[in-house]
Amino acid sequence: MDFNIRVFTGIRITDGLEFLITETTVNTWIVMGLILLFAIIVRIRIARVDPLARPKGLQNFIEMCVDGWEKFYASNTNPIVMYLAPWFFTLILFLLVSNAIGIVGLRPPTADWGMTFPLALSTFLLIQFAGVRHRPKSYLKSIFLEPVFLFAPLNVIGELARPISLSFRLFGNIFGGMVLLTLLYSLPWFVTLLLPIPLHMYFDLAAGLLQAVIFTMLSLTFVSLAAAE
């Protein structure tokens, strides 16, 4: 039994530095390809639609998704960060598909800390960006001078712990589900006949959806809190 990430090939950049094409990379490409394909199909279908007619079918569904997301976003964040709604929609879409891809037997890309940590790092950069852009003085003051300047190291450490806890939460959940399912498939054949179906439902679909929502929700709450108190 092997839970390690398979490495398919490596591209040598310089001596001792190698760019590895791993299972995570390939599965991320698959996820990206699926989302891109869907986006292109939607784009082609929507270009043909009469904008004044009543929406139906796929267009209706997409409008419902985007509209629902914007309502959800507006009810959970400050209006001044409304321009970030598309970024978080992209994030939740990517996380949803990559968490659920275990259902076809592929290793979820998010079961790799090297995948979740950059995502959490982008959230971290976005928090700092939003804070510095929207309220530079009070944001920097809240980090370096609150409650007194002696607490600045603690505040900085607390700020740096955010991407780590965010990324470990997503990684641990998806990795744990993957390990459990892999262990299940090593049991005798009569156990693997029916039992994997509900477990796949829970670990890939339900927990994947929940973790994607939690990651996005926490990210947008942090960003909104940094942009305005």
Binding site: F3, N4, S165, F168, R169, F171, G172, N173, F175, G176, V179, L210, Q211, V213, I214, M217, L218
Partner: peptide
């Protein structure tokens, strides 16, 4: 759901430590 996710953090740290020790 958000609260559940936050409460889960320590359990997830346990899983990460266990996975580190094993693999």
């Amino acid at each position: 759901l958000i609260g559940c996710g936050l409460a889960e953090t320590s359990g997830v740290y346990g899983i990460v430590i266990a996975a580190l020790l094993l693999f």
